Simulated assay, not measured.
Amino acid sequence: MSTRTLARRAALAGVGLTAAFALAACGGDHSTDGGHGGHGGAPAGAVSAGGSAAAADSADVMFAQMMIPHHQQAVRMSELAGSRADDPEVKQLAERIRAAQAPEIATMTGWLTAWGRPVPSGSPAGGQPPGMDHGMPGMMSDADLVRLEGAAGREFDRQFLTMMIAHHEGAITMAREELADGRDAGARAMAQQIVTSQQSEIDLMRRILARR
């Protein structure tokens, strides 16, 4: 296992322990019934794709806890394209990203609820979520997002594509670590889907950049 992975898990373990104590103090029910958690939950069908506490290991939990804020940032970036992008293909791609990743956020939220593990909440729109200062590959900084929010037209397209390529590459890195270390069937299936779909989107974004 890589040093980067160990550092990332150590950072996440501290966050998970703190959040677990907080949840216990609130008297929350962490049963694995696949029900609705305090963060919106996920459709019952989505939880059925994973969510077995017996099957999940620490890699599966880390994958979901880190990929949720990672996806949230991608969705936010994609939403900006609706009013700022110039290229119709960029707008279509942004909507494709949003439509794919928003349901995955709900699914992973459902898994964590079923596993009785903390669901990331209160993450900033940019940068690393609180307590996760290490190992969130591809995440944009606050300054990156401010710059993207202030752009429009062709300049927005260029920044969006450049940032989203890096963002997707980070997601693929995390997904491959889940495939190497995770054991939950649903989490592994999602990780493989992320690798396949986001690599395809990276290829498309590079082609769009090349013609601009």
Score class of each variant (00 low, 15 high):
residue 31 S to Q: 15
residue 172 I to S: 03
residue 20 A to W: 02
residue 133 D to C: 03
residue 196 T to R: 15
residue 98 R to S: 13
residue 71 H to R: 11
residue 132 M to C: 04
residue 206 R to M: 11
residue 74 A to D: 08
residue 204 L to G: 06
residue 203 D to R: 10
residue 40 G to T: 15
residue 111 W to K: 02
residue 154 R to P: 09
residue 19 A to F: 07
residue 59 A to K: 02
residue 158 R to V: 07
residue 182 G to M: 03
residue 57 D to S: 12
residue 98 R to P: 01
residue 142 D to E: 14
residue 139 M to F: 11
residue 58 S to P: 01
residue 187 A to W: 11
residue 48 S to V: 12
residue 165 I to P: 00
residue 57 D to V: 13
residue 112 L to T: 08
residue 144 D to T: 06
residue 77 M to H: 12
residue 179 L to H: 04
residue 115 W to R: 00
residue 87 D to A: 13
residue 77 M to D: 07
residue 13 A to F: 10
residue 23 L to H: 04
residue 10 A to I: 12
residue 79 E to K: 10
residue 33 D to E: 10
residue 35 G to R: 07
residue 55 A to T: 09
residue 169 E to G: 06
residue 182 G to N: 00
residue 81 A to K: 01
residue 14 G to Q: 12
residue 25 A to V: 09
residue 169 E to M: 09
residue 65 Q to Y: 12
residue 22 A to G: 15
residue 86 D to Q: 15
residue 122 G to D: 09
residue 197 S to P: 04
residue 191 A to S: 07
residue 59 A to Y: 00
residue 163 M to D: 06
residue 192 Q to M: 14
residue 78 S to Q: 04
residue 79 E to G: 15
residue 189 A to H: 05
residue 169 E to A: 12
residue 14 G to V: 11
residue 53 A to T: 08
residue 107 T to R: 06
residue 103 P to R: 05
residue 105 I to W: 03
residue 108 M to H: 01
residue 126 G to Q: 01
residue 100 A to S: 14
residue 144 D to R: 01
residue 152 A to D: 14
residue 4 R to C: 04
residue 6 L to G: 08
residue 167 H to M: 11
residue 210 A to P: 10
residue 193 Q to R: 15
residue 80 L to N: 02
residue 92 Q to E: 15
residue 51 G to I: 02
residue 194 I to D: 01
residue 176 R to V: 07
residue 181 D to V: 05
residue 38 G to K: 04
residue 144 D to M: 07
residue 84 R to M: 00
residue 173 T to F: 06
residue 67 M to H: 11
residue 175 A to Q: 06
residue 37 G to P: 02
residue 122 G to W: 06
residue 125 A to I: 07
residue 101 Q to L: 09
residue 187 A to V: 14
residue 43 P to N: 11
residue 67 M to F: 12
residue 136 M to S: 05
residue 118 P to A: 14
residue 148 L to W: 01
residue 32 T to E: 10
residue 161 L to Y: 00
residue 89 E to W: 07
residue 171 A to M: 10
residue 128 Q to Y: 10
residue 169 E to D: 13
residue 198 Q to C: 06
residue 27 G to R: 05
residue 9 R to Q: 13
residue 201 E to L: 04
residue 30 H to A: 12
residue 53 A to F: 03
residue 169 E to Y: 01
residue 104 E to T: 11
residue 193 Q to F: 00
residue 137 P to Q: 01
residue 77 M to L: 13
residue 126 G to I: 02
residue 122 G to S: 06
residue 96 R to T: 07
residue 87 D to M: 11
residue 166 A to W: 02
residue 57 D to E: 08
residue 84 R to A: 06
residue 116 G to F: 09
residue 32 T to Q: 13
residue 82 G to E: 08
residue 52 S to H: 12
residue 41 G to E: 10
residue 6 L to H: 12
residue 173 T to M: 06
residue 113 T to I: 12
residue 194 I to W: 01
residue 95 E to C: 05
residue 136 M to N: 04
residue 47 V to S: 04
residue 83 S to G: 10
residue 185 A to N: 04
residue 160 F to G: 00
residue 121 S to W: 01
residue 89 E to P: 01
residue 39 H to M: 09
residue 170 G to E: 00
residue 209 L to Y: 05
residue 23 L to Q: 13
residue 160 F to S: 00
residue 106 A to N: 09
residue 192 Q to A: 15
residue 139 M to Q: 11
residue 185 A to M: 06
residue 54 A to S: 15
residue 35 G to Q: 08
residue 98 R to W: 08
residue 95 E to Q: 13
residue 111 W to N: 03
residue 169 E to H: 03
residue 80 L to I: 03
residue 72 Q to C: 13
residue 167 H to Q: 13
